[in-house]
Simulated assay, not measured.
Amino acid sequence: MPQLIRWMFHDHLRHGMVLGTAGCEVVTLWRPPGSVHEHASLTPPALVRFIAMLGTAVLRAERADRMIGKHLPKGERQFYLRMAGVRPDRQGQGLGGLAIRAGLAEADAAGLPAVLETATESNVGLYRSMGFELIDTWPVARKGPTFWTMARPVPFR
């Protein structure tokens, strides 16, 4: 997993937006408008790299990624919170909320909604407190984890 997270981080430096603290206590990965549904090309070298990172789980990861794409609202005129993480020893201190709100401020400045999905049911309440509304609940596979897709409309001005 560390290799996959490292790849995602560098991918967002190129195609997205990375917001967090200087010491990496919290990191959020955002896809701005125009890159919400963008995916890395699955060329033979990329496939080899992903197999090296994920082994036999590469097929499950590809299915999860495909299902996430199906359940995100269509179109590119939105900001997509792809991932948020807080270092375990800094959880519960409000850092995650600060980093997420920084991304939401970018969406607000652009006058656009924000979307996300979470596989952690306890996060649904946190995201609701930030103005997100539940738009879909779905399983990745018959025996896979449940995901919650949420959207935050453009705030009134």
Rank of each mutant, 00 (worst) to 15 (best):
M1E: 01
P2H: 13
P2Q: 07
Q3S: 14
I5S: 09
R6G: 09
R6W: 02
W7F: 11
H10M: 09
D11M: 10
H12T: 01
L13V: 13
R14Y: 07
H15P: 08
H15D: 09
G16I: 00
M17H: 11
V18A: 09
G20R: 00
A22R: 12
C24L: 05
C24H: 07
V27E: 02
W30Q: 01
R31K: 15
P32A: 13
E38P: 05
A40E: 15
S41T: 12
T43E: 06
P45L: 13
V48G: 10
V48F: 14
R49Q: 15
I51F: 15
A57R: 07
L59Q: 07
R60F: 08
R60G: 11
R63K: 12
R63S: 11
R66H: 10
K70H: 11
H71V: 02
P73A: 06
K74T: 10
F79D: 02
R82D: 15
A84F: 06
G85L: 06
G85I: 02
P88H: 13
P88F: 07
R90T: 12
R90D: 05
R90M: 15
Q93I: 05
G94P: 01
G97I: 00
A99H: 03
A99W: 03
I100H: 03
R101I: 00
A105C: 01
A105D: 06
E106W: 03
A107R: 00
D108R: 08
D108E: 10
A109W: 03
A110I: 02
A110C: 06
G111L: 08
L112T: 07
L112F: 08
A114E: 02
A114V: 06
L116R: 08
E117T: 11
E117M: 05
T120H: 11
T120L: 11
S122N: 08
N123P: 08
N123D: 07
V124D: 02
G125T: 12
R128Y: 09
G131F: 04
F132W: 06
L134I: 09
L134F: 13
I135V: 15
D136S: 15
T137G: 11
W138Y: 14
V140G: 04
V140Q: 02
R142E: 12
K143P: 01
K143V: 06
K143D: 15
P145S: 05
T146P: 04
T146M: 14
T149E: 02
A151Y: 03
P153C: 01
V154Q: 04
P155L: 00
F156Y: 06
